[in-house]
Design a protein around this nucleic acid. Sequence first.
DNA 1: AATGAATGAGAGTTCATTCAT
DNA 2: GATGAATGAACTCTCATTCAT
Lengths: 213, 213, 213, 213
Amino acid sequence: MLNPGEPKFRRRKADRPGEIVRAAMDVFAEKGFAAAKLDEIAARAGVSKGALYLYFETKEDLFRAVVGQVVAPNIAQVKALAAAHPGPFSDLVRSLVGHVVGVVQATSIGGVVKMVIGEARNFPELARVWHDDLVSQALGALAAAVEAAQARGEVKPGDPRAYALQLISPLLVGVIWRETFVPIGAAPFDLPALMRQHLDTVLTGMLAEGALP
Amino acid sequence: MLNPGEPKFRRRKADRPGEIVRAAMDVFAEKGFAAAKLDEIAARAGVSKGALYLYFETKEDLFRAVVGQVVAPNIAQVKALAAAHPGPFSDLVRSLVGHVVGVVQATSIGGVVKMVIGEARNFPELARVWHDDLVSQALGALAAAVEAAQARGEVKPGDPRAYALQLISPLLVGVIWRETFVPIGAAPFDLPALMRQHLDTVLTGMLAEGALP
Amino acid sequence: MLNPGEPKFRRRKADRPGEIVRAAMDVFAEKGFAAAKLDEIAARAGVSKGALYLYFETKEDLFRAVVGQVVAPNIAQVKALAAAHPGPFSDLVRSLVGHVVGVVQATSIGGVVKMVIGEARNFPELARVWHDDLVSQALGALAAAVEAAQARGEVKPGDPRAYALQLISPLLVGVIWRETFVPIGAAPFDLPALMRQHLDTVLTGMLAEGALP
Amino acid sequence: MLNPGEPKFRRRKADRPGEIVRAAMDVFAEKGFAAAKLDEIAARAGVSKGALYLYFETKEDLFRAVVGQVVAPNIAQVKALAAAHPGPFSDLVRSLVGHVVGVVQATSIGGVVKMVIGEARNFPELARVWHDDLVSQALGALAAAVEAAQARGEVKPGDPRAYALQLISPLLVGVIWRETFVPIGAAPFDLPALMRQHLDTVLTGMLAEGALP
DNA sequence: AATGAATGAGAGTTCATTCAT
DNA sequence: GATGAATGAACTCTCATTCAT
């Protein structure tokens, strides 16, 4: 039974901010902060320009929300990762890298990475959030795992932080390649295949004699 | 500080465009294209805003000149590199990577890399120049060297283009780290040391049994 | 005078473009295209400078709209005129010229005429619209009427297009005089009287012996 | 014998201002005051932009010089005309109009007329010079001749100033037509033929019975 | 809550004018 | 006298932000 005063369909109010952030992420990732127009974000979110200001104070605020949106859900996973595996080092690395490859493939985190790189100097506090909550944590956890493996004699001597960077670099470069050169027609890299070959190669180089598979 | 007797005009046509491009490179690298103000570029170049237009038609034009300025001198070197070494693969790679590390340390190419990544979608023709003249050439030359070494039995089977990316990725990530996180206080990577360790590791993984050093 | 309680925004979308075009016509007619400032047009229209861009893409666009605004309503009348009178030639001419005098007196078409003359070389497409849709049509219709009257033996031999120009020239010159010299204090011409005397004179000269009134 | 220090060819200093004014007249006539660039005027005059300022204080000054240049030589002729002919009215008018047609055909006065019309509101003092020294004089002289002829019974009653305007209007309109519509492809008027037909027509209408030729 | 017309500060660009050479 | 590189004020245009509805 339809009461006359009742609205025929109700917008899910609770979801508005989420829809806006999603739309903003797309536009920011595509254009960068400055070249992104609020008009376009509003249009893609299916709301009016004025509505953005019901949920976000300024454009910068919205930008921060976009970055936060990406950082937040991954913090937990990085934390979990820090309480690491007791098994062999190469298993840990493979599972961890595999997980990151999955995230990179499934989400639009790649575009946000590009944004953070491009706007780090204009939004230092965002670079800080990104670094402190995500990058540094992940890199630190990986470096700690390397160090532990070195202590067990599983991995050759060497700077653990550098080893950690070596392990994930091709993935990051592959993502940047995708964001930068694939749109102009360059051949993409098959990220899972790339990382499989990379881990085969680099783990062979890292592992001590006795630990080789 | 303005001394009263100081001349208002300077009149140094020959050097002006170079000074302006240098100033613009600094500002663009720091702020990105859109957030860079012509006022600031002019001020840093020590000229008036109007003077920019004596040498460059538009802001975009100046931006292109900045990118071109970095691409141009490196094209020749990439070409030379393509006509490569007959010696052992690892020697070639070490010398080549060493050279690139030198360029990265000595020039402000890092900031330009960041710009190109950030503005690739807004200036596809710049992404194309950068890719076609520089990145693709260098990666292709390296991949060809890998392939030749594989044919000689020096390097294990595997995708040569992926190998090429693996070899230089940490350097690129190190540069991006420097541009992104060092300004907010993160510890930088020692690029030469990083790449020394990386090549030791990754070459061990790449070289076939008989070719190991 | 700004009363404190007065609203800052007015929100009258329906009427805005019309108000703006009217204000623009005044300013363009007074100053010419280049010397007309958007600030002044906006002020006279009672809107902000930015509001102009809600309705017109560029200053040139607004200029075209002003010219179009004047051309459009007169096209129909010129068309009607082409399907002319069957009566005696002098009656046709008197009624027609009388009508044009009325339009010139009642509207600000005079200022727009001045604009079109002044900017024809910079906006050839406007000169073309003005010529094709208005001037050439009107002159052609008048010339056709002359030719028909000549065929009936009512008007002496002679170039019909030239006769048409002779008939309306003093009106145009009178309008230009009003726009050019009256503002500096010159005595205006009484256009209706001028044209009455002119038609008396020139029709006497044009009509064949038997057709004289 | 050539002394070493002597210049091989000497610029005619005395002519510089004249060359500049001629070039300026072309550009102003083509573009109007505001759209005319000093760069272009200097280039057409074959001098540097700075050189303009050796002879003229400002752009407006140069504009005034251009108008003056056209007004000056014609003032004398108008004066001569004022001390008029004793012969029959129609002879006077034919010779006078014939002279003006000659001037209009031989000089670029047409473009200047257009300029004066277009810029009269921005440069009232120029409109005044043009009016007081040229237009008003010529029209007054012609009106005086009409009045004298009326006193002699040669010309019908009627407003002499209006008669004067009627006599020359088609010439002015023909010139404006040439400047406005011929550049976009409209057919020009043959001014001498137009004025011949016009005088035949209008004099027939003006002259009293007994004075008809 | 939601809209979108309106604002106005600030950007890129032009060009008459200046002045060291 | 002559140059033309350099200036800077003034312009058109953009867009994040506001607020009457």
